[in-house]
Design a protein around this nucleic acid. Sequence first.
DNA 1: CAGTGAGCGAGCTTCCGCTTGACTT
Length: 920
Amino acid sequence: MAHKLVIVESPAKARTIEGYLGRGYKVESSIGHIRDLPQSAADIPAKLKGEPWARLGVDVDHDFAPVYVVSRDKKSHMTKLKGLLKDADELFLATDEDREGEAIAWHLLDELKPKVPVRRMVFHEITPAAINAAVANPREIDMDLVEAQEARRILDRLYGYEVSPVLWRKVMSGLSAGRVQSVATRLVVDKERERMAFRVASYWDLEGTFDAGSAHEQRMFPARLHSVDGTRVARGSDFGQDGQLKAAAASGAKAVVHLEKTRAEALAAALSDTELSVRSRESKPYTRKPYAPFRTTTLQQEASRKLGYGASRTMSIAQRLYENGHITYMRTDSTTLSETAVNAARNQARELYGAEYLPDSPRTYTSKVKNAQEAHEAIRPAGDAFRTPAQSGLTGDEFRLYELIWMRTIASQMRDAQGQSVTIRLGGAAATGEDVVFSASGRVITFHGFLKAYVEGSDDDGATDDQETRLPNVSEGDRVTAAQLRAEGHATKAPARYTEATLVKELEEREIGRPSTYASIIGTILNRGYVYKKGTALVPAWLAFSVIRLLEEHFTRLVSYEFTAQMEDVLDDVAGGRRDRNSELGEFYFGTPEVEGLQKLVNELGDIDAKELATFPIGGPDSGVHLRVGKYGPYLEGPGDDGTAYAKKANVPDDLPPDELTMAKAEELLANPAGEETLLGEHPETGLTVVAKNGRYGPFVTELLPEDAPKNAKPRTGSLFKDMSLETIDLDQAVKLLSLPRVVGVDDDGETITAQNGRYGPYLKRGTDSRSLATEQQLFDITLKEALEIYAQPKQRGRAAAAPPLKELGNDPVSGQPMVVKAGRFGEYVTDGEYNATLRKDDSVEELTAERAAELLAERRAKGPAKKAAKRGAKKAPAKKSATKKTTAKKTTAKKTTAKKTTVKKAAATKTTKAAAEKS
DNA sequence: CAGTGAGCGAGCTTCCGCTTGACTT
């Protein structure tokens, strides 16, 4: 009872197709990619751990041979697939027909190692006919396409895993850089830079309501001043970002007149009694084609505009609709509808709106997306006959999104909207003798066509496609009076910030990112703290300015907007067999005589001046005020009261958008550097104002010294206890905190013992000898007697002595010493007394076995004895420098080490693939 | 960026694209 095994990418797709293929076929899914480069050190096979390139998962010295590991969460699934393959007499690899899909097919082949014939089958729509045709016409795996995918994967890995550590060293730990996220961040930063450079322009014109007379059904209509004495009046688009008239508008044949308030008002007054006449009336036919069916990005944009959903919310709703068979696949760059879908849409349009709303032949849409891979259909209602939203049984978000998709799909097969757009010019002479022309434009839709079903939303507050403005049916020479006329002031607006939807749109236009990743790109730049949301707008944090500037100055090509597009061209050539994967990656990583390679770029970065990169002048380079991005966030530095440069500092509120940090705002912040402080009241003894605020080391209370206080006087301060918060602290508590340190008493030698609160919590101090206290309350309670008792005990060293082991695991096979698990400063670790090994991300104390513990200890032991007396708390800057140097040195010495095994393995795997493909 | 006293196991962070559940709020 052998069956044929078909493997697709998505489980939902597998269920549908199994229904179509019927008996003799077993359809399963790979659930996406099954293998990948190791994500972190823990995933790297043990025998490769010593390799200098292990960190990358790619042997850069041997043809960029990748190490592939089956993802942890796919292991059991692969076992299942292997089991199904055992009983199969034929294997169909039916992953998507695009670069990634081809690679998945190859990975499946390489991992499953089937002994039965293997065929590659592809289809672009899920209909019985398409599936059966695909089964009947299999092909072979396209190894050039696989190579192109591998090149893409490796390039992204090298970029991400080489550049991110530069940021850890130079800016902040945990940051990241990548081909896609860094350009996305740069777009947001560039937009903010435009806003910061933007200068508003103000201009005036006249707006009026005119009366065409009682003979007209549409009697009143609005018009706007168009020209004065034959010269056009300046409008917003005539002004540049600098607030000045654009060169062409300021001079030249089509010069414009820039109306100021006084002149506009004078003109309005001079026109109060003027009768105008119609100088011209132009009417042009207006047609509007329907929008293409949804693909991922357009769905995200419309869901944002109409339903207010973020990209990830839209995608998770769509995922549910897809899984439950309501819509086709939602991660697609295609706008193509299958023949059955076109028929379904036409039928439904006819039912709902009548045959006159249908064009004679079906409409087809070609993708505007340049790098579209078109492995799927457009996003549309599933099935051969669409269910209306009411029939779907859906509710809530799912209903709303389905309705959007349904209407858009139907509208895409309907007729154009038709109508007329009309422009009327009115002219007359002002009392001052000037000749003025007003202009009115209108639109009338005579046949709504697809607009009856669906109208696209608008990003700004601009007009939608179905908006109409009716104008009276006047003719040249007709008299018109002004019912109302007023001078109106306008100001140009800075370019709008990106929203999730408009950023995704921009990325797609620049061929950056893929349908499956658009939503997560936004998530990444939000999570890294590069960008935050203010309403729906994406605002860059100063951190992003710092990071982007570093990348722009030192990795210029990598963050250029053309980089991905160029990469796509190269990958196309690799896929077409016209270019070689290895030489392209070699150029990227090792460089050419003309272009410096990534490796060298990264290794020679030791001298980047991080401080310089993190400094941004405010209000011009010589203002004496600048913003710095520090470890604790952005802060301002400005001149002290005595003129000392950069003596004053002030925090910048987290939610202050960069373009609002003007010189005036900076001065205001510097003048009141206290930042956000909570007023608690007046100290009962000193009479000074007591406030609570957040500091570098957390929340604390302090008192504000009077202005006339001596210069060297320092206010008392005190950290809040762990159980206190800025929200709840009151004056009583603050006064107690400020009373610290407390003198507990004097010992027999006359030495004073004090109780105080410090970095590591409450402690006692006697000269240079200190002891920790168990509770903060003891700071107020402890008696001299108790304190002396504590001092009578030997000093407790470290926390390890105090904390009991979390788990005991028997003796280590190598050292023979007992292995115990302890909780330490850096998390849980296992120790045999000599070596300590931190538990890895996937280990847990509960599940840790003696074998695993021994393994961890063995790994740790292989790295050599623990460093003795390495200076703790060394200053940050030198520590960084030495770390940089060490990395560099390691890389260069290890360069010539070989790693034959991997190369051979990959070559062999490639061969097997080809053999298997040939067999089929 | 307030101002403070020790001594303790380092190891990990990160990319982009394919896919779902398994989690928690």
